[in-house]
Simulated scan of single mutants.
Amino acid sequence: MKYKRYVISDLLSEISMGPFGSNIKKECFVDAGIPVLNGSNLADVAMNDDAFRYVTEEKADSLGKANASRGDVVVTHRGTLGQISFIPSNSMYERYVISQSQFRFRCNEKVLPEYLVYYFHTRKGQHDLLSNASQVGVPALARATTTFQQLEVEIPEIEVQRKIVGILELLRNKIELNKEINKNLLQQMESIYKAWFIDYIPFNGKRPINWEKTSIYTIANIIYGAPFASKLFNTDGEGVPIIRIRDLKEQAFVTYTTEKHPKGHLIQPGDIVVGMDGEFRPYIWGNTEAWLNQRVCIFKNIRPKGKAFVLFTIKPLLFKIEQTQVATTVIHIGKKDYDAFEFYLPDEKTLNQFDTITYPMLEQVVVNSLENKRLSELRDSLLPRLMSGELDVSSLDL
Rank of each mutant, 00 (worst) to 15 (best):
R172M: 07
L398I: 15
K307Q: 14
M47I: 15
N182G: 05
V326N: 10
Y119S: 04
P202V: 00
N368V: 09
I242F: 08
E371H: 03
E169I: 00
W285R: 10
K315N: 11
L11A: 03
P262M: 01
K206Y: 04
G389Q: 00
Q83T: 13
A142D: 14
I219E: 02
D247H: 05
L171F: 06
R143Y: 11
A133I: 08
D236I: 06
H332A: 07
Y193S: 05
G389W: 00
A226F: 09
W291C: 07
Y359K: 07
I98A: 03
K25C: 03
N48K: 05
L383H: 03
M1T: 02
G239L: 06
I158P: 03
I223D: 02
V366L: 11
V74I: 14
D397P: 04
V153M: 04
N108G: 07
G137W: 02
I98N: 06
K263C: 09
I201F: 07
L370G: 12
V55W: 08
T358F: 05
D10E: 14
L248W: 05
R303L: 14
P360E: 02
R385G: 10
L386P: 02
N352A: 15
I357S: 09
I333R: 07
I98M: 00
L37M: 02
K213I: 13
E190T: 06
T313L: 08
L141R: 00
V153P: 03
P241N: 00
T218S: 15
V75Y: 05
F228E: 00
F280G: 10
N287H: 09
A43S: 15
N38M: 00
Y283A: 01
K300G: 11
M92D: 06
G18P: 04
